[in-house]
């Protein structure tokens, strides 16, 4: 039963990532692209943790943690680049 629920959640998050990809490619404002990219990072974290559940290992936790940190830093860096013209002043 857990496996079927995990497959359902895999489908949901994969569809969510495709929607984000559509928005990254075809959005008309930069703010929307940054937002879609950040959402893609969060959905990727969810997919990694789901893969860990499906395989029954805890190895993917570290990868998910690092992706969470990289996603936050890259989103803030991108937004700051648009706002100020450089990232570290």
């Amino acid at each position: 039963m857990i496996l079927y629920a995990a497959i359902f959640a895999f489908g949901c998050f994969a569809l969510a990532i495709l929607m984000n990809l559509w928005k990254v490619l075809f959005a008309d404002a930069i703010a929307d692209r940054i937002l879609a990219l950040d959402t893609m990072f969060i959905n990727a974290i969810a997919l990694m943790v789901l893969y860990g559940i499906a395989l029954g290992t805890g190895i993917y936790f570290e990868a998910a943690m690092i992706v969470a940190m990289l996603g936050f830093v890259s989103t803030v860096a991108y937004a700051r680049f648009i706002l100020r013209g450089n990232i570290i002043e």
Binding site: I2, A5, A9, C12, I17, M19, A36
Partner: peptide, 24 residues
Amino acid sequence: FELLITAFLIMAGLFGLVGSFGLL
């Protein structure tokens, strides 16, 4: 626990889908 994990997974999948659909 099996029911609990299944409920969490289905809820999580639906919320993730709704979040990204709202973006569109």
